[in-house]
């Protein structure tokens, strides 16, 4: 298996390099998609299925889609005219840094295990049995709350600055409609399943939100969904619902137990599922709007 790992690592490097050095945009993005899938595969090899799922769906899939949309709207790239000396200096420095990192990771002091015993000891009180979900929504829920704030801040930025006049995709024709009829409900089902599953097995709000976003994107490409036609207020409310629920829950928990984000005893699972439900809807909507853009408040002419 070591040989497989070596080949996979080499393939990742080649894909990464080709994504960054392809002369045309389509080639670069195709390289990036392949790169993302290979990386997801390597996460599986390293026993990180949650991360692999998220990488495939969000890191590779959604980012690739965003890139493709942008590439379609931007002028083709000009050829790089970087002085050779600068190139050489950059290469030297990059090799130095990568080499330093490699040397550093090769003689790491023996594994210092800090988190494992703590997580194992507290998992019983966290209300869920999937340790990653326990970390994300209980032990380090503050990070997740702020992460939702990042999503929302990005959406504010995209809404304020996205290109004016989002082009509406052409309807994909009658053949596509039956596909949509299956796809849309299925994505909702799968998202719900992932959400429920997240408590015990790999999965959770982010993966569920990504799947939901996939279903919504299918509707969007089918022409069945036009965010630009919907008034901005409700859309914002949808996107903000998850984080608002999360923040309200954090404060409510503080009122109930005296500590921020400390869920009342025994009710952890219910709180976590409620928060995750809100998050899933908001993540799905936010990711979709990050893709399609949205008009802000009607201020735009």
């Amino acid at each position: 298996m070591i040989v497989f790992d070596l080949m996979l690592a080499a393939a990742i490097l080649v894909a990464g390099w080709s994504a960054l050095s392809a002369p045309d945009r389509t080639g670069a993005i195709a390289g990036f998609l392949v790169f993302g899938l290979l990386v997801a595969l390597s996460w599986v090899r390293l026993d990180a299925p949650d991360v692999a799922l998220a990488e495939a769906a969000i890191g590779s899939g959604l980012t690739g889609a965003l890139m493709l949309r942008a590439a379609g709207r931007m002028a083709p790239p000009a050829a790089d005219r970087v002085p050779r000396a600068q190139r050489a200096a950059a290469a030297l420095l990059a090799c130095g840094l990568a080499g330093g990192l490699a040397v550093a990771v090769m003689d790491l002091p023996g594994a210092t295990i800090v988190y494992d015993p703590l997580v194992r000891a507290d998992l019983g009180q966290s209300g869920v049995s999937n340790p990653v979900t326990a970390v994300l929504l209980n032990f380090r829920a503050w990070d997740t709350l702020l992460e939702m704030a990042v999503l929302l801040a990005a959406l504010v930025l995209v809404a304020a600055l996205g290109p004016r006049g989002t082009p509406r995709p052409a309807r994909l024709g009658p053949l596509y409609t039956p596909f949509l009829r299956i796809m849309a409900p299925l994505s909702v089902l799968v998202a719900g399943h992932l959400l429920w599953l997240g408590a015990t097995a790999p999965g959770g709000a982010f993966q569920a939100g990504a799947v939901l976003c996939g279903g919504l994107l299918a509707l969007y490409f089918g022409g069945a969904l036009r965010p630009a036609a919907v008034p901005a207020g409700p859309l914002w409310a949808l996107c903000a619902a998850g984080v608002a629920v999360f923040a309200a829950a954090a404060l409510a928990a503080e009122v109930l137990t005296g500590t921020l984000l400390a869920y009342p005893d025994g009710a952890d699972k219910i709180w976590i599922l409620a928060i995750e439900g809100g998050l899933t809807v908001s993540i799905g909507a936010t990711l979709l709007l990050l893709f399609t853009g949205l008009r802000q408040g009607g201020a735009r002419a």
């Binding site: 600068q86 200096a89 950059a90 420095l93 840094l97 330093g100 550093a104």
Partner: peptide, 20 residues
């Protein structure tokens, strides 16, 4: 932009080297 990237790279590499 490019010299900025170079500066980032140079700073990170130099500090890492100095630290090690």
């Amino acid at each position: 932009a490019q010299s900025g990237g170079l500066a980032i790279l140079g700073m990170a590499a130099a500090l890492a080297l100095a630290a090690v």
